[in-house]
Design a protein around this nucleic acid. Structure first.
Lengths: 197, 197
DNA sequence: TTTTAACTTGAACAATCGCTCAAAATCAAA
DNA sequence: TTTGATTTTGAGCGATTGTTCAAGTTAAAA
């Protein structure tokens, strides 16, 4: 019970840190910002996470896990895979938009922030994106097995196309007055997906 | 002549700064990095550009201009608009990839780096992206007039789709061992464009 | 109640940040 | 050659960075 309490608090701290890192990025989030947000002093933070980078790694992994959970929830709510995916995209790009720390996917933001000078974080973001792609491949395999998509492309190719569309769309919706276009562009995205051959 | 000499040197300085900013982003590029790259001391830099932000603005505008010039060159090399666009995308995503400071578009990188705490730079990047969209709209209008694309969508809608694809693709090609997929994904992009309705 | 181990605190360090400015160097006009 | 205006230099300012660590606090064991 006590162990759970500690574990819970640690998760809560990671989640708050994740929100801040997601909003400001790794390099521009100062340890003072983090201290204020998670209400911990340097000594405690460094005892628990080792470094700013250590805390960020946990935050990024937590974000990736939350995304997978969200996608699983959406898929469980529909019998058709494509309906679940549509719900997922709609939820992320429209409903979550208002209270999300950033309009971009944290993984994509990470992958674009880090260069060869920060190989640890670059590799981590790439691995997490790779995991998500694997996850999507399984999903698209199921969609093909259920006859929702053609067999001309492999499931991995569909997964790639989905990510490209999703990322591009998310970036585009970062522009002013683009919210009103969101629903139409999402419809267009799934239309393109089904037209692929 | 002297005026041209000075102007030329200023442009050269901006171009070098642009490369560095493109690679590292605005916030993580220090004024010391810039000093070394453009071989100027703080006093001269601040006399010429006012601030780090001032130099960045010129660098970003220069990047946008270079992109438009590149696109114009590609379009001029082909009678069909879609062939020109294909050349442009191929050049940026495959040929330029090796010697480019970053795998991402500098405008997209800027638009994702800046939040509400840096409104000047956020607005600038949004304006430049907006200009590029207008430019693309004109291009797609011509493509439609030449019968290369359907009339079901407006030119602006084609321009939006192009940007979403281009951005998403560019982000995806940031992952390891994805270079071998580039050509195929570009072909898929233009296939989707022509299948749109 | 005393002991001990674990955790928290916050002052402070060295490094780096964007930027200033008096002094030196440069150059064109007289 | 002298003068006066312009540009360049680089030491250094105050603020902020990631991180450390001795001192203080807390809580469970004895």
């Amino acid at each position: 019970m006590m162990v759970n309490k500690v574990k819970f608090e640690r998760d809560a701290v990671v989640r708050i840190a994740s929100q801040l890192f997601w909003q400001k990025g790794f390099n521009t989030t100062s340890t003072r910002d983090l201290q204020d947000a998670i209400n911990m002093r340097p000594g405690s933070i460094y005892a628990a996470f080792g470094s700013k980078e250590g805390l960020y790694c946990e935050a990024l992994k937590d974000y990736a896990l939350q995304m997978q959970n969200k996608l699983n929830t959406c898929l469980a709510a529909h019998s058709k895979v494509l309906d679940g995916l549509t719900m997922f995209v709609t939820q992320v790009l429209i409903e979550d938009q208002h209270h999300a720390p950033s309009n971009l996917c944290m993984l994509i933001k990470a992958n674009s922030e880090f260069g060869d000078d920060q190989p640890t974080l670059k590799t981590l973001s790439q691995n997490l994106l790779g995991q998500f792609e694997e996850f999507l491949s399984i999903i698209f395999t199921k969609a093909q097995r259920q006859g929702e998509l053609a067999e001309d492309l492999t499931a991995l190719e569909y997964a790639r196309f989905f990510q490209i569309q999703f990322t591009g769309l998310r970036s585009y919706l970062n522009r002013p007055n683009s919210n009103r276009l969101a629903a139409g562009l999402i419809a267009q995205m799934f239309l393109s997906l089904q037209l692929l051959k």
